[in-house]
């Protein structure tokens, strides 16, 4: 308190700090998933720069040709698969991290094929979603997400590149991961995930509600 009986500036800041510090905070995410997102961002930036350089050197006609090379065709290496709509990185601990470029429509067939290369049995569908009733247990051991799911549906703001980390060793025998992507009328995308029994599942093109033992994300389109 000062001579007028008022709290000093330092006292006020200490009270504000105490109150804000008492808010519960989530523990930090896995640094490997953060670094995977950073690597994906760096590669996108370098690809864009390479495309711009080539266009500047060779003119518009060649630039149009490069779109086909740098776009949907995956650029592969031993540990990383990169396409226009996703990057899949193999981590040292046996997991794989998928980073989704939310501005591009996901190439479902390519992703399913690439996940299988990494030992992740998955059914990736665009405009439909496959589910088993009841779903096999173990979903939360098989996948982790960033942003972390909040309640039944998680809203992903524009500018965020969601990541999914898969642990293939945790998948129960006879199961697959179902991953359905829908284009929303708002321009955004919805992604649904759940485990299914390989021998018993149904697929529907109806936009699903939140899966009972899974996760649902809605990626907000910039400007919506």
């Amino acid at each position: 308190m000062n001579v007028h009986g008022e709290m000093s500036d330092a006292d006020v800041l200490r009270a504000a700090s105490r109150s804000l510090s008492a808010l519960p905070m989530a523990s930090p995410p896995d640094v490997q998933s953060i670094m995977a997102r950073g690597r994906a961002r760096r590669r996108r930036r370098l690809s864009a720069a390479a495309g711009l350089s080539a266009a500047a050197a060779a003119g518009t006609v060649l630039a149009l040709g490069l779109t086909g090379i740098l776009g949907p065709s995956p650029a592969r290496s031993t540990a990383t698969i990169r396409t226009a709509s996703f990057t899949l990185v193999s981590n040292a601990n046996g997991t794989a991290t998928l980073t989704i470029n939310a501005t591009e429509l996901l190439d479902a067939a390519a992703l399913q094929n690439d996940l299988q290369q990494y030992g992740i049995p998955a059914m990736v569908t665009s405009g439909s979603f496959c589910s088993s009733v009841p779903p096999p247990a173990g979903f939360s051991q098989v996948v982790s997400f960033y942003p972390r799911p909040t309640g039944s549906r998680t809203l992903v703001p524009p500018g965020t590149h969601p990541t999914v980390t898969f642990s293939p060793s945790a998948m129960p025998a006879g199961t697959e991961l179902s991953f359905g992507v829908f284009q929303l009328s708002s321009g955004g995308q919805q992604a649904d995930f759940m485990l299914i029994n390989s021998s018993s599942y149904t697929c529907s093109s109806t936009l699903p509600g939140p899966p009972p033992d899974g996760a649902q994300f809605q990626i907000v389109r910039p400007g919506s």
């Binding site: 804000l20 510090s21 808010l23 905070m25 989530a26 995410p29 953060i34 670094m35 997102r37 950073g38 690597r39 961002r41 760096r42 930036r45 960033y146 942003p147 972390r148 909040t150 992903v156 703001p157 500018g159 965020t160 590149h161």
Partner: peptide, 29 residues
Amino acid sequence: LRTVVAVVGGPQLAEDQVAEAFAKAWALW
């Protein structure tokens, strides 16, 4: 994270924003 929560309020979205910022930091480390 606490700094961003203090500014924007919503802790969930603040987490996402901070995670994305750290990813950018690694890309430009």
